[in-house]
């Protein structure tokens, strides 16, 4: 029994990269699932059974994290000391806060209005979704750049983009809530 690694990349035997080959990841997942499947350990010692259970638990968490590009990026950032929880509000650029504040204000004005506000809400949704798509495209570019250069400055850049994405995701959710509420 080799001790299993609790590091998600190491568990899968993968390089610590931001761009992952998803079909390859899936193949590795199924192969490891078979390897650690508790059914294969039923006749083994308690210790070995526990080992299989622990490995399976890590495997599932690791797969869930690595197959999702955003969760994967958060994981790799955390490994490298760019944890979102550690940075506090001081590292959010003021321009971003201003922008998000203004967008929220505009959304609030549309809120609770009658049906005449609907086209403006639809416009706002389009705008926020387009912003999210732009962010995702920026992220893909930065993923490639990091994997190529392994530059910590790129990680700092990605941290900023992910923060911005959280704000924009909230705006998308808010406007969608408003649109479905208005339709009811």
């Amino acid at each position: 029994m080799n001790p299993v690694s609790s590091n998600y990349y190491d568990f899968f035997g993968l390089e610590h990269k931001l761009d992952l080959d998803l079909p390859d990841l899936e193949k590795r997942f199924y192969s490891l699932s078979r390897q650690y499947h508790p059914d294969r350990y039923t006749l083994k010692s308690r210790e070995e059974q526990q080992y299989a259970l622990d490995a399976t638990a890590i495997l599932n968490d690791a797969y869930r994290t690595l197959r999702d590009p955003l969760a994967r990026a958060e994981y790799l950032l955390k490994e490298n000391g760019f944890d979102i929880g550690e940075q506090g509000s001081k590292n959010v650029p003021p321009e971003l806060l201003e922008e998000v504040f203004e967008l929220n204000m505009a959304l609030e004005e549309l809120r609770g209005g009658d049906d005449s506000a609907r086209p403006a809400l639809e416009e706002a949704r389009k705008k926020f979704v387009a912003m999210r798509e732009q962010i995702d495209s920026d992220l893909r570019g930065q993923f490639t750049e990091y994997d190529r250069a392994r530059d910590r400055n790129v990680l700092a850049e990605i941290r900023g983009i992910l923060n911005r994405r959280r704000y924009v995701r909230n705006l998308v959710n808010e406007v969608e809530k408003e649109l479905t509420g208005a339709a009811a």
Binding site: I84, G85, S89, V92, P94, L96, L97, E98, V100, F101, N104, M105, L162, N163, R164, R166, Y167, R169, N170
Partner: peptide, 30 residues
Amino acid sequence: GMVGAPECGDVMKLQVKVDATGVIAEAKFK
């Protein structure tokens, strides 16, 4: 003061108005 918490996407604006004696006369937030 404009601050934000990216974890949850919160943004907070807080303003104070200080009078001639250095006391905060008004405070507003959104």
